[in-house]
Amino acid sequence: MTSVFDLILRRLVQGHPDQLLALLFGAQTPSFIRVADSSLPQSERRADAVLVVEAHGVRFAVDVELQAQADPHFAERLLDYTVRIHRREKLPVLPVAIYLVPEAEGTPPPYGFECAGMRVLTFDFQVIRLWEVDYRQPALQAATALLPLSVLESNAGPERIAWAESRIQQAPSLSSEERLDLLVVLGTLASRRFGQDRLSRHLRHIMIDSPFWDELRAQERARTEVHERVETLLIFANARGIPQPPDAEARLSQLDASALKALVTKALTTPDTAATELRALLTAPKH
């Protein structure tokens, strides 16, 4: 299922392709020519954004793919997109992966394989990690559409929400519809990073009317339930004298909600069985 965060970021980059280039290239931004069709030939798939640009007299396509969650097949999918776009546009293609959060990042490039002792394929692509981007860069300061992304910067605190909201509200170049669109993106990303309680009253009011609010609240409830079940299991482990490694909470948090619920239920109904399973989880060697 497509993540709500994939959807809002796709909406952002498709609505402001010229400003997206500042994020990808910084001060060496190529000239924006046009947005290309994001549907892929002979495929039911669709790229997140395909931009045709020009730099130093050379025209090429940029395939931008957004990742908000881990995908073990991402690199091979990006390779497939790159080849299809190249064949349709008859242009060189620069593939770019934009990772929203660290857990979305997979195996670093290049992707490739060997066969019969020969390197058959090496496929490289550019990587943008949104938590590493410095939004103090002049090119990004001027890109109003990128302001919502600034809340994902690793060293940004909750005060960044108010700063970005104020900048968006005061930007004279935005239409009312564009301003509302960016505030929805800001509210969605800020809720993910800092929680809904950190939003201003005005931003919360905007978010309640957005199509993403119900899904955000459901995800917030799910995160709370996972945290509560993990805490219950750690208390149970302590009572049973089960050794807890430093990463005990992280290990349990990797279980899905149904597995955690089942283990908590066993702790209440068949505690000896639960203790055996929990001990195995917490003492298993890390791979």
Rank of each mutant, 00 (worst) to 15 (best):
V264T: 10
A218G: 06
H202C: 06
L66W: 00
R88E: 00
I242C: 07
E153S: 15
F125Y: 15
G112N: 08
S175E: 01
P243G: 02
K90Q: 14
P172Q: 01
E44Y: 12
P285F: 13
L21G: 07
V151Y: 07
R59G: 07
V64T: 08
M118Q: 15
I206L: 11
V64E: 00
L40D: 05
A248G: 04
L152N: 05
V52A: 13
A61D: 01
F25K: 03
D48Y: 04
S191K: 09
D214A: 14
R192G: 15
R88A: 03
A75Y: 03
T273N: 09
W131C: 09
D71P: 01
D181G: 06
R84M: 00
R251G: 02
D181H: 15
A250Y: 08
V83E: 00
P148S: 04
N238Y: 14
T270Y: 03
R45A: 15
E153V: 05
A36K: 02
R204P: 02
L66G: 00
K286T: 14
L278E: 05
F212C: 07
S39Q: 14
A164V: 06
A259Q: 15
L174H: 00
Q19L: 08
D37W: 08
L94T: 12
Q19G: 03
F212N: 06
D214Q: 15
G15Y: 08
I85R: 00
R221W: 11
P246R: 10
S173A: 05
K266G: 06
H287N: 09
V50L: 03
V83P: 03
A274D: 01
R136N: 12
I208N: 05
D209L: 10
R179E: 01
Q19F: 08
D272P: 07
K266S: 10
D6H: 06
R198T: 14
